[in-house]
Design a protein around this nucleic acid. Sequence first.
DNA 1: AAACGTCGGTGTAAATAATGAACCAACGAG
DNA 2: CTCGTTGGTTCATTATTTACACCGACGTTT
Lengths: 256, 256
Amino acid sequence: MRTVEKALKLLDFFTDKVTEIGLSDLARLSGIDKATVLRMLQDMAESGFVEQNPENKRWRLGAGILRLARLREAAQPVTRVLTPILERLAGETGETAHASLLSGRDLANIGVIEPARANRVYIEPGLALPLHATASGLAFTAFARPEQRDRVLGRKLSAITGTTPVTRDSLAAMLARTAERGFAVADQTYEAEVYGLAVPLFGPDGFACGALAVATPASRVSEPHERGILAALAPAAAEATRGLGGRVPAHHRITY
Amino acid sequence: MRTVEKALKLLDFFTDKVTEIGLSDLARLSGIDKATVLRMLQDMAESGFVEQNPENKRWRLGAGILRLARLREAAQPVTRVLTPILERLAGETGETAHASLLSGRDLANIGVIEPARANRVYIEPGLALPLHATASGLAFTAFARPEQRDRVLGRKLSAITGTTPVTRDSLAAMLARTAERGFAVADQTYEAEVYGLAVPLFGPDGFACGALAVATPASRVSEPHERGILAALAPAAAEATRGLGGRVPAHHRITY
DNA sequence: AAACGTCGGTGTAAATAATGAACCAACGAG
DNA sequence: CTCGTTGGTTCATTATTTACACCGACGTTT
């Protein structure tokens, strides 16, 4: 396997909760030899992607990432555009709203706003959303470039919950339904008790580049609630697409 | 040379202005073979660090970077802590204020606020500041861990302007002066017409982890102005250090 | 339209850089 | 004191990276 890819995959073991990892742990988690992991970490430290805590020798994400993120935001202000939209969306629906963009093989969650109520869905910041098992992933894939869609259909699909689509046919059916309705539904396909509704975000080429989604506790789902969420989601997504410099294709209609 | 390091160095060619680069250009810029560059880009695209514009086939920084940045912010909210401090600092001094953290071999600029006046210093967002040629770099290095300081002194120092310190001795003298006074001065050592004042930011171990700085047009420099900037900079840096979970060492005093 | 230069991308054989088992010293727990 | 862990180093083996040559496509210039 390619070395660069392996090295960068090490970064995926850092999460919301696990912010520092020791050398041996990281070697175990990744299944790569300790010596190799160390060399890769040192290489990445040169560029500021990771840094070593001098106290306990453990490794964490580095400040160089913040620098590159600023650079990307300067090129295209994604976060700045999406944050107010997410805030309004969370306020209007009373549910957790989040946005994600394509990043490698899945969607990168790049913004979450939670509503001001006790019973709400918690979404890890910086989570990587699988394309086949989340409402965002379905909404994106259904409107993505054909080659992207085919790539997803060609993968072996991991079962994350009992209702996750695992066969090519079931996923294809879900995508067809999503394409038809203009939005995606994910009923506990990624996490139990969580129901997701998502709409694609479009790039300048008229193909999806990400998704805007609302997640609600499954217990709260009802037709009127769902209609209310979609009524807020649809214009929010259109605004987000415009804000990102994208173009909503003419054939995209949201029909409940 | 190590492959991972080379691949990540490709990202350094993206700047504020140059947000998209074609394959051949990147190969030329980096001096690496086209085929190699392509493979490295594809590997990094797998992880979302870069992405290819489907229209013109050129490459740009990817959304995966935003995801990782969110993750790091969740672990330690650097940007959130520093932004209001920078805003106040820029307001009080009437000059451009910026903050940076150690990232690999230099300081990563992770926040800039410009004042509301016409004649001001512009600092590229996401710039990498050399440790020997900027006020921030000097302030950091003078109070960094000894091994870090020695590493900087051991490098060959590039002359960026006519007044950039290029010999080990001149840099050592500047660092000694900085350590003594508690703040750093850089008189056009990085860019002509720009005068910088900087104070270190400290980590939990009492060593510098970054710097807080104010940049002013050289034409505006005067003793009272300088005193005024330092009077705002000193408490701002102390607050920033505390906000980042750091500890200002007892021996650090700012004496003009 | 023909010739040229560029572009992004591909395949190959050669050589370089990555690899991982064995080994250290240091630390903490029992 | 022993055991198990940690982070880190070394070095022969080997598998990965490398760069040359090549390809078709596109745009200019002649």
